[in-house]
Write a protein that binds this DNA or RNA. Structure first.
Length: 312
DNA sequence: TTCCGCACCTGCCGGC
DNA sequence: TGCCGGCAGGTGCGGA
């Protein structure tokens, strides 16, 4: 599933392979994939045709490509192509001269490109489970005046991204403020980690891994955790996502690949996620799976003892 | 205001 | 062999 390291891997690929390209044409094969674009599929295509992709930026799991006119190649304008990969979305950079008449059963949107630095002609949005989406949206200023996200120098973010917090790999991320915000909540620590308004980019996989590294059970109440414990789990999340990024992200199957269609290798680096019954790498106790907020959570019952009065 | 549960969506897999 | 239900899970909305 694409979480922060996977989305950052895709962003880096787009930065190298398609930034500078002009969108010659747009094909929307599945209207639902542009459901968040206010003008519908036709408006989505109209707003992209003839525009130049001037950067590849990211905050948390949101990815965007600021747009400019093709002539007068100045700074980005006030609009951007915004993407969220959801559970299974992929952005694939394709050159038909290399891959032939490539298609995919889950191809939802295709951008035809001219002038990409890689020579690629297609930017394909492939999405099996269709939780992902694309839109063209306005850029709005960041409240703190710092760049909106990794890969962009603009102090602006897409309007739908304005409400989410900065992510742990963002140089402008304020860990002290995040610790305080989490402790003000009256919920479980995993719920807080997954709340994208507090901090962005952490999903189910890395939340479980960070909690295991920090030796905290997912149901520990945020308002009863000491600041140092919250800080410990944030540091662990930063560490595990940095390691995953170095290995191209986590791939369990072909639902996550980079822009070239290649898998990441971090799945083998996971300590507990998806390893029910397998020995904890620290103490050897079989990992446990619980259903928490309608999804699986994996813990070591010894390293991460369940609290007497936790918040499920 | 804050927190929580659920719907959205598709394909795979196991059970019958 | 075919059908059906469960499961995967990020996000946003509505209800408590």
């Amino acid at each position: 599933m694409p979480e922060l390291p996977e989305v950052e891997t895709v962003r880096d690929g787009l930065d190298r392979l398609v930034v500078g390209a002009v969108v010659r044409d747009v094909e929307v094969f599945r209207d639902y994939s542009v459901r968040r674009h206010e003008g519908g599929p036709a408006g989505f295509a109209d707003q992209l045709r003839g525009r130049r992709l001037v950067a590849a930026a990211r905050r948390g799991k949101y990815l965007w490509l600021p747009l400019a006119e093709p002539v007068g190649t100045g700074a980005a304008e006030d609009a951007t192509l915004l993407a969220h990969l959801g559970m299974s979305g992929q952005l694939l950079v394709r050159d038909p001269a290399v891959v032939g008449d490539w298609s995919h059963p889950h191809l939802r949107v295709r951008l035809h490109l001219d002038g990409a630095p890689s020579g690629a002609r297609y930017l394909d949005f492939v999405d099996q489970r269709t939780f992902g989406h694309l839109s063209v949206t306005d850029l709005v200023p960041t409240p703190d005046g710092a760049p909106g996200g990794r890969g962009s120098e603009l102090a602006a973010v897409p309007e739908p991204v304005a409400h989410i917090g900065r992510d742990l790999l963002d140089p402008a991320f304020d860990a002290t403020a995040a610790v305080a915000a989490i402790r003000r909540r009256r919920t479980g620590i995993k719920r807080a980690l997954l709340d994208q308004t507090l901090l962005s980019g952490v999903g189910n996989i890395y939340a479980d891994e960070a909690l295991w590294r920090a030796r905290l059970h997912f149901a520990r109440a945020t308002d009863r955790l000491r600041p140092i414990e919250v800080r410990r789990v944030l540091d662990a999340a930063t560490q595990v996502m940095t390691e995953a990024l170095a290995q191209g992200g986590t791939s369990f199957d072909d639902l996550y690949v980079n822009v070239n269609g290649e898998s990441g290798y971090f799945a083998r680096g996971l300590a507990v996620y998806g390893r029910e019954g397998e020995p904890c790498p620290r103490c050897g106790t079989p990992a446990r799976r619980d259903v928490f907020t309608n999804r699986s959570s994996f813990t070591c019952p010894v390293c991460q003892p369940r609290p007497r009065s936790g918040r499920w």
